[in-house]
Design a protein around this nucleic acid. Structure first.
Length: 634
RNA sequence: GCCGAGGUGGCGGAAUUGGUAGACGCGCUAGCUUCAGGUGCUAGUGGGCGUAAGCUCGUGGAGGUUCAAGUCCUCUCCUCGGCACCA
């Protein structure tokens, strides 16, 4: 809420707070350096003027703001507490923002971390007025207590909860005409202009008389000039008179075209909608955009998880309010994929800066004592090893996928990136991992060709006619189809989907050719693997699909179906634990009754050994999983 | 500083609902194939003890809950990302 502190000279200082329940703990007021009252006092006080000047140079980054030392000056002014009438000193402080609220805050050091740090710095009183709900002790001189709680040392309000006090204090202030409940929205300040060439021009013309004038619709779009020679400093557009020297659209007098361009975030905030009506020359969006949106599945990098999504949602709601779209949100389902990271290498320059060396140009080895050592390939010079970081131009640790595609093909590159990590975690680049992905594709290729080279039977034996190993393999196949379908469709863990296919391929290789079911079973397995991998390695699987004798596109073929009959088992392996520790395994019929399972578990030789001199006091049976015998010394 | 995501073998990772930690891949070791190998195949591979059977320790650290904890709870350390004109 907003509340008023009257000053001795009759002037009113209005502050904004979200915690009126802490009002009785106010020990001073703090004003932003840009506050009008500070401006007036400054005229007669050169020291204060100098202080305000240093504050002006503060950084705007939140990181700087948060770590910056809290500094301030007393203004020599006293204000009156709106409820108690007590004198409250007024300070100017560098951490108070003029842009937010009223540019003045009531400081409660006991219950706000910033105020606490400031009070300690300048020896201002710290008055605790909120105690933890659970009645626990809190050393208020050590740290601020910022949670809600129960009021103490607050006259008539003592004993109320924060929530109750909020209302009670608000009503007391309103009754005296010294406060108003108000909702403040904190708007994110988005500087969309960039002083560079690349970017969409901002269609505004600045006129000395008319101010900022929009470029008339008939002259849109403003097109970037192509005769620009960037010299590496400042905005190239600002140096090009043919671009910026124009007449004012309103009064016709000489004016200057805006030379900043839009931040690329600006365009990326609504491209997903424009994409649906890209060929429309008359309007931003048409009915097609509304038909397709919201996006069913959006994929974006984690490093955009806050800003890009914030801006896209803002645009979407704006487009909705303008009647261009009917949906409230741009994306139904979001997958935030991890970054591609790679090692960094550098050499210190004489001036303390760093020259970054691309990992492709560095040879990493282990020295005799196990430490890693890195040398530049070209000249053998040692380089320093940095951490694993996001691939970037500035750290020169990018890997060009083209070299990989040239050597192994696009499918290998795709397979590796999907296999190395789940998509929402970061992906660590590894040359040998790429090699392994390529090896797997070669093995799959060979299995398909060796199979088609042999005579294959057309009959598909039912589960009843399969012998033990063939039956196990067929069960494995259908378990794999079930797992891969879930991994790709629901869990979106493509790495485990690929691993499951690798396992299946390993199993196929183990099946003996002398098994009468082998040809038909191999065909069933290879067909399924090719179909399951098609979304990940489309080119290789298309070729193998044809080799297996199918017409048309593998991409158009139906996803393999799970044969539930094949999943049936008649025996299961159970772990047997004694006091939670694994002591043996038993193989029992699938539907064996609990008592029989327990007896079988107790009969295991190693289990018996661990039960010597013990009495079993409890038995836990998790069906299909394990038996845990809880024993005590007898 | 605040917010978010992570921490599991030599490495990337798996363990989906509290139920056999380390699937799959890389690397490494041995053997086979080959005139040859920067190829392929087979087997082994968390640490310690043991000929073996097996025992024991083990998921960043410290506590706790439970028959049972990588998974749940409390505290804590570390790394990366966002808060900057790469997007």
């Amino acid at each position: 809420m907003e509340l008023d502190f009257l000053c001795a000279d009759g002037e009113k200082l209005t502050v904004y707070t979200t915690r009126p329940d802490t009002l009785m703990g106010v020990s001073y007021l703090a004003l932003a350096p840009e506050h009008p009252m500070v401006g007036r006092l400054m005229e007669a006080d050169p020291d204060l003027a100098a202080f305000v000047e240093t504050c002006r140079n503060r950084g705007v980054a939140e990181a700087d703001l948060a770590t910056m030392e809290k500094l301030g000056r007393p203004l020599g002014v006293q204000a009156l507490h709106p409820l108690t009438g007590a004198q409250v000193p007024v300070w100017v402080a560098n951490f108070v923002l003029m842009e937010y609220g009223t540019g003045a805050v009531m400081s409660v050091p006991a219950h706000d971390e910033r105020d606490h740090a400031f009070a300690r710095q300048y020896g201002l009183p710290i008055l605790q007025v909120i105690a933890p709900m659970d009645g626990g002790e809190w050393d208020i001189n050590e740290r601020a207590y910022t949670e809600h709680g129960r009021l103490v040392a607050s006259d008539a309000f003592s004993g109320l909860t924060s929530r109750e006090a909020f209302t009670a204090i608000a009503e007391a202030l309103e009754a005296r005409g010294l406060g108003r409940r108000r909702r403040n929205y904190r708007l994110r300040d988005w500087g969309i202009s960039r002083q560079r060439y690349w970017g969409c021009p901002i269609p505004v013309i600045h006129c000395a008389d008319c101010g900022a004038v929009p470029v008339p619709e008939s002259e849109l779009p403003v097109v970037l000039p192509e005769d620009v020679v960037p010299d590496g400093s400042g905005s190239p557009l600002a140096k090009l008179a043919s671009f910026h020297a124009v007449g004012c659209p309103k009064c016709g007098r000489p004016a200057r075209r805006e030379t900043d361009t839009f931040d690329t975030f600006f365009e990326s905030s609504w491209y997903y909608a424009r994409y649906c009506s890209a060929d429309n020359r008359e309007a931003m969006l048409d009915a097609r955009a509304d038909h397709w949106l919201p996006v069913d599945q959006y994929v974006g990098g984690v490093e955009h998880a806050v800003l890009h999504l914030l801006y896209a949602r803002f645009f979407h709601k704006l487009l909705r309010d303008e009647g261009l779209l009917n949906s409230d949100e741009p994306f139904t389902r979001l997958l935030t994929q991890g970054m591609v990271i790679a090692p960094t290498f550098y050499r210190e320059r004489a001036d303390g800066g760093r020259d970054w060396i691309n990992p492709a140009d560095v040879e990493v080895s282990r020295t005799a004592d196990g430490a890693t050592e890195a040398r530049e390939r070209a000249n053998g010079e040692p380089v320093r090893v940095g951490g694993m970081e996001k691939m970037s131009k500035s750290k020169n640790n990018g890997v060009d996928p083209q070299a990989l595609i040239d050597r192994y093909g696009a499918d290998t590159a795709r397979l590796f990136t999907m296999f190395a990590a789940p998509p929402d975690l970061s992906l660590e680049w590894s040359d040998s991992g790429v090699e392994g992905a390529h090896r797997f594709l070669k093995r799959l290729w060979r299995q398909v060709y060796e199979f088609t080279g042999s005579q294959s039977a057309a009959v598909r034996p039912g589960p009843d006619t399969l012998g033990g190993p063939a039956r196990d393999l067929r069960r494995k196949l259908h378990e794999t189809i079930a797992k891969v379908s879930d991994d790709i469709g629901r869990r979106q863990t493509f790495n485990t989907a690929i691993a499951a296919n690798m396992e299946l391929l390993n199993e196929i290789a183990r099946l003996s050719d002398s098994d009468p079911a082998a040809p038909a079973l191999r065909r069933e397995c290879l067909n399924a693997i090719v179909l399951m991998l098609a979304p990940i390695v489309p080119h290789v699987t298309q070729a193998l699909w044809e080799t297996l004798g199918h017409d048309g596109l593998v991409a158009d073929a139906a996803w393999p179906a799970v044969d539930t009959d094949a999943l049936a088992v008649d025996e299961v392996t159970l772990a047997v634990q004694v006091n939670g520790k694994l002591r043996g395994q038993i193989r029992v019929p699938f539907d064996m009754p609990r008592e029989a399972v327990e007896a079988a578990a107790r009969a295991d030789a190693n289990v018996l050994r661990h039960l010597q001199g013990q009495t079993v006091v409890k038995v836990i049976v998790v069906p299909g999983r394990l038996v845990n015998l809880v024993a005590k010394p007898s």
